[in-house]
Structures are given as structure tokens and as C-alpha cells.
């Protein structure tokens, strides 16, 4: 446990001191600034656009953090053989996997918390400037939507750990993780479309393709389940059951991925 926490701490430090972090933070701050500048152009939709841009900027910054910094925090250990040194200490391979995961999770959470402060300031400023155009806006729903961005990124971190445990190259991990993310975000809509009458008229969509996509939809994590942007932007109430199911789904899926990663990693050889 002590070893795992120590590994999480150095993983966090290694991530938080990475210079790419400043670039990503600047990009997010630029998006918040842009939001303030252009908010006036959207007339009655200022509130919706503000919430939408802020949540999207947070989400985008989180993705960049994972794909540009997070992936390297584990994959580079294997790439550069730093893992030889780490595993020569009394640290089991499962502890290594969990330590790396929690380190990446701390890093993503801390970085996004900082950006969230700026995001809240942006929203608060626009709320002050255009109070009449924020009908139905609720800080509570805004924070729920933000929290689920965190949950989504934690799950994506588990995906990164899973692929890092399989491959020896950070580039391959990046490609697989990115593909999983894109599939995970869109698969729900694809499955939904396949069930419509319009899709039934399409001759090109065979039954076997439908079955294949159905299977994929069960295997690939459904990242759309964590998207509460629309509810936050329009001030719609969120069902508690949906919150619980989404959160439980994220935690369970992450746990399964980490378990699989531990199993694969414990059998792996490091030449």
C-alpha cells in the first residue's frame, strides 16, 4: 500500500511538472477568455453557449492532458525501461498498475480543478454581465456535469493503463486509447440509429454488421453516458438514478480494466 502510494505521488509530480501542462492550461484559458469576448454575439443563448463552451473546454483540456501527458506517465516507463528500476523494488505488478492509475487520476483531477476555478469565474462573470440570459441555470447542475467530466477522464485513464499494460510503445497506446475514446463517444448514437426505421431501409447495413456493432457497444466504454452538458446548458433536471448508474458504470468499468491490466501485466516480460 505504501509503495503504491509512493508511486502515485511520483507519478503525480512527474505529470504536474511536465511543460505540456502549461500549454494545455493556456489553451483552456484562451477558450474561457474567448467565451467572455464573444458571449455578446449570441443574444438570448448566452447562458447556454457559456455553459457549453466551458464544459467543452474542460473536457477538451482533460483529453489533451491524458493523451499528451497521462499516456507518457506509464507508457514511457516501459518504453525507456524505467520499469526495470521500479520493479526491482518490493512493489508488485498490481501495485504498480494501481499506483500509476491513481497518480494519473490525481494529476488529471488537480489540473482540471485549477481550470475549473477559472471556468467558474468565467461563468460567474458572464452571469453578472448578462443576468437575464441565464434562465434556468443552476450551479448545482453545472457542477454535476463537471464532476462527470472527471469521471469520464478517470475511466479514460483506466483505458490508457489497460493499453499501456499490453503494448511497449507510447504511440500504440495513444492510437488505441484515442480510437477507444472516439468509438466510446459515438457508439451510443450509432446503435440508436441502427434501431430506427430509417436504418432498417438501408440495404447496405447487414444483420451481421448490426450484430457486430451491438457487440462493440457492449465492449467499448460508453463515454456518452457521462455527458451532462445539455442538461447543464438548458438547466434541465437530472434523474438521480441516471447519476448513480453513470457513476457506478464508470467506477465498475475502470475497476474491470485495472483488474485486466494487472493480470496482463503480471504475466508480461520486460526485455
Amino acid at each position: 500500500m505504501r509503495g503504491m502510494l509512493s508511486l502515485a505521488v511520483i507519478t503525480f509530480k512527474e505529470g504536474i511538472r511536465n511543460r505540456s501542462l502549461f500549454g494545455i492550461a493556456l489553451l483552456a484559458l484562451f477558450l474561457f477568455g474567448l467565451n467572455i469576448t464573444v458571449a455578446g454575439f449570441f443574444m438570448r443563448d448566452i447562458g447556454k453557449v457559456t455553459v457549453d463552451i466551458n464544459l467543452s473546454a474542460l473536457n477538451f483540456a482533460g483529453l489533451l492532458l491524458i493523451f499528451f501527458v497521462g499516456i507518457n506517465l506509464m507508457a514511457k516507463d516501459i518504453d525507456r525501461k524505467t520499469i526495470h528500476l521500479v520493479l526491482s523494488k518490493p512493489l508488485s505488478r498490481s501495485q504498480y498498475i494501481c499506483g500509476k492509475y491513481f497518480g494519473i487520476q490525481f494529476f488529471i483531477t488537480a489540473s482540471l480543478m485549477l481550470l475549473m476555478v477559472f471556468s467558474c469565474l468565467t461563468v460567474a462573470l458572464l452571469l453578472q454581465l448578462y443576468p437575464n440570459y441565464f434562465d434556468g441555470f443552476s450551479w448545482g447542475i453545472f457542477f454535476v456535469a463537471t464532476f462527470f467530466i472527471f469521471v469520464k477522464l478517470w475511466l479514460l485513464s483506466a483505458v490508457v493503463i489497460f493499453f499501456s499494460s499490453l503494448t511497449s510503445s507510447s504511440l500504440i497506446t495513444l492510437i488505441f486509447s484515442l480510437a477507444t475514446y472516439v468509438a466510446g463517444v459515438t457508439i451510443e448514437e450509432v446503435v440508436f440509429y441502427l434501431k430506427t426505421e430509417l436504418a432498417a431501409q438501408e440495404r447496405i447495413i447487414s444483420e451481421s454488421l448490426k450484430s457486430f456493432i451491438e457487440v462493440i457497444s457492449w465492449v467499448v466504454p460508453n463515454f456518452a453516458a457521462f455527458d451532462f452538458t445539455m442538461e447543464a446548458a438548458h438547466g434541465l433536471a437530472i434523474n438521480t438514478d441516471r447519476l448513480m448508474v453513470s457513476f457506478g458504470y464508470g467506477v465498475l468499468y475502470s475497476a474491470i480494466l485495472l483488474l485486466l491490466a494487472s493480470l496482463i501485466f503480471s504475466r508480461r516480460e520486460f526485455n
Binding site: I10, K13, E14, R17, N18, R80, K81, T82, H84, L85, S88
Partner: peptide, 13 residues
């Protein structure tokens, strides 16, 4: 205690 050939350590620590 193990020292690998060309130890790659963590850059930012």
C-alpha cells in the same frame, strides 16, 4: 539492490 544498464530515471523528479 539493482542498477540497470543506462538507468532511465524520472525526468521531472
Amino acid at each position: 539492490g539493482y542498477l540497470p544498464e543506462n538507468p532511465y530515471l524520472y525526468d521531472h523528479l
